Simulated scan of single mutants.
Amino acid sequence: MKKNHFLLGLLSLGWIFNYAHRMAIPPLIPIIKSELGISNAQAGLLMTSLLLPYALIQVPAGYMGDRIGRKRLVVISIFGYSIASAFMIFTRHYWHLLAVRALYGFFAGLYYAPATALISEIYGRKKGSALGIFMVGPPIGSGIAPLIVVPIALALEWRYAFLVLSIMSALIGLALIIAVKGEVHEVDNPKLLIPKHVFWLSLMNFIVLAAFFGILTFLPDFFVNNGRSLEESSLYFSILSIVGIFGSLIGGALYDRFKKVSMMVALMFNALLSLALAKTALPVIVPILGIFFYAVGPIVTAYTSELASDENRGSVMGFVNMMGFFGATVGPYFLGLLIDRLGYEKAFYTIPLMYTISIGLIWLEKNKK
């Protein structure tokens, strides 16, 4: 059990930096827009460019992890995304940024399916709580990203921030190689099989991650547009993510106890709180939103693992996440386009609408079953 906890800790660290790299862009958007002269829609494409290859590799990653070893593929992912992100230091034009982010997205996409399938398998009935710990990666990674990249961008130059992050994440991959010998769990007869009953959950995940990454991409700029400084706006972004650490832990624990009901409650509060944020732009809403915003991740992950067997768990985890990140690919660009045409307040009203639709889809899935 101690070995499992140690592995969970390292996997969680790798997931933290997976998110720190990808979420280094949002707090730097005001600087990048100024330097390169790009629009909000083009800024949104800086997230889309990594999320599209990330989404496409999900199912192959789940199946590859089942075949060659889940821990082995996680290590390949960490070194791959660290090296790819370090290439940001050489970018000089907008299309350079898109290409580097796409390469990063490919290697980052190899991580989630094998890692979550491995955790679900070794923790069994306690997988909700274990995945709640693992899923602190998004809030911690998103929270530390501006704390690392903004000071470096202001003191030196924003591209160096990615080099620093790459060195830090590569150390996690090295620790996994040295400290965890061999494969922890091997799949006897892996199958590339996606059951029909995961369709509604996958569609819901598409919409939820479109909303999730839409908010994360433009939240700092949303507050800058409402009269806050870049430093203050980055702080609110970090607060959302730091509070989300507790939201992730709470979400995992609630799933172990209340199962699917916990998902409905989390989605409902996300709809209400994102509506309040769009209407008022009050910073006090941010920490409350952070709890429910990040509680959804471990709940969806744990529920997905129960819809699969050991033979196809990696493939199913990858498929549901793939559909989610197709939504994440569309979300930032769609929201950026709406901001350009309608302004921030009206554009942000689409976020609670998406959460409301996702509640309906889960209810529909319940009735279908």
Score class of each variant (00 low, 15 high):
residue 57 I to D: 01
residue 57 I to A: 01
residue 58 Q to W: 02
residue 59 V to I: 12
residue 60 P to G: 01
residue 61 A to R: 13
residue 61 A to S: 15
residue 62 G to T: 02
residue 63 Y to F: 14
residue 64 M to V: 12
residue 64 M to D: 06
residue 65 G to M: 00
residue 66 D to Q: 09
residue 67 R to C: 02
residue 67 R to M: 03
residue 68 I to Y: 15
residue 68 I to R: 15
residue 70 R to N: 08
residue 70 R to T: 05
residue 70 R to M: 11
residue 71 K to W: 11
residue 72 R to G: 06
residue 72 R to H: 07
residue 72 R to M: 07
residue 73 L to E: 03
residue 74 V to L: 08
residue 74 V to M: 09
residue 74 V to Y: 05
residue 76 I to Y: 14
residue 76 I to S: 12
residue 76 I to H: 12
residue 76 I to E: 06
residue 77 S to E: 05
residue 77 S to Y: 04
residue 78 I to Q: 11
residue 78 I to P: 07
residue 78 I to S: 06
residue 79 F to R: 09
residue 81 Y to W: 12
residue 81 Y to N: 09
residue 81 Y to P: 10
residue 81 Y to A: 05
residue 82 S to Y: 02
residue 82 S to V: 04
residue 83 I to M: 10
residue 83 I to V: 15
residue 84 A to S: 13
residue 84 A to Y: 03
residue 84 A to N: 11
residue 84 A to K: 12
residue 85 S to R: 11
residue 85 S to T: 13
residue 87 F to P: 07
residue 87 F to V: 06
residue 87 F to Q: 05
residue 89 I to L: 11
residue 89 I to A: 08
residue 90 F to Y: 11
residue 90 F to H: 09
residue 90 F to C: 05
residue 91 T to D: 00
residue 91 T to M: 06
residue 92 R to V: 07
residue 92 R to I: 05
residue 92 R to T: 10
residue 93 H to F: 00
residue 93 H to G: 03
residue 94 Y to M: 00
residue 94 Y to P: 02
residue 94 Y to K: 09
residue 94 Y to R: 10
residue 94 Y to A: 04
residue 95 W to T: 15
residue 96 H to M: 01
residue 96 H to L: 01
residue 96 H to D: 13
residue 96 H to V: 01
residue 97 L to M: 13
residue 97 L to R: 14
residue 97 L to P: 10
residue 98 L to G: 08
residue 98 L to H: 08
residue 98 L to W: 06
residue 98 L to R: 12
residue 100 V to I: 12
residue 100 V to T: 13
residue 100 V to H: 14
residue 100 V to D: 12
residue 101 R to C: 00
residue 101 R to E: 01
residue 102 A to E: 03
residue 102 A to T: 11
residue 102 A to Q: 13
residue 103 L to F: 13
residue 103 L to E: 08
residue 103 L to K: 14
residue 103 L to H: 13
residue 104 Y to C: 03
residue 104 Y to L: 11
residue 105 G to T: 00
residue 105 G to A: 11
residue 105 G to C: 02
residue 106 F to G: 08
residue 106 F to M: 12
residue 107 F to E: 04
residue 107 F to N: 06
residue 107 F to C: 08
residue 107 F to P: 11
residue 108 A to L: 10
residue 109 G to P: 12
residue 109 G to F: 04
residue 110 L to M: 15
residue 111 Y to T: 08
residue 111 Y to M: 04
residue 112 Y to E: 09
residue 112 Y to Q: 11
residue 114 P to L: 10
residue 114 P to S: 09
residue 114 P to Y: 03
residue 115 A to W: 03
residue 116 T to S: 13
residue 116 T to H: 07
residue 116 T to M: 11
residue 116 T to L: 07
residue 117 A to C: 04
residue 117 A to E: 05
residue 117 A to S: 15
residue 117 A to D: 06
residue 118 L to I: 02
residue 118 L to G: 06
residue 118 L to T: 14
residue 119 I to V: 15
residue 119 I to M: 04
residue 120 S to K: 09
residue 121 E to I: 05
residue 121 E to C: 01
residue 121 E to G: 03
residue 122 I to V: 14
residue 123 Y to W: 09
residue 123 Y to L: 00
residue 124 G to R: 10
residue 125 R to K: 12
residue 125 R to T: 02
residue 126 K to P: 00
residue 126 K to H: 04
residue 127 K to N: 01
residue 128 G to M: 03
residue 128 G to D: 03
residue 128 G to P: 09
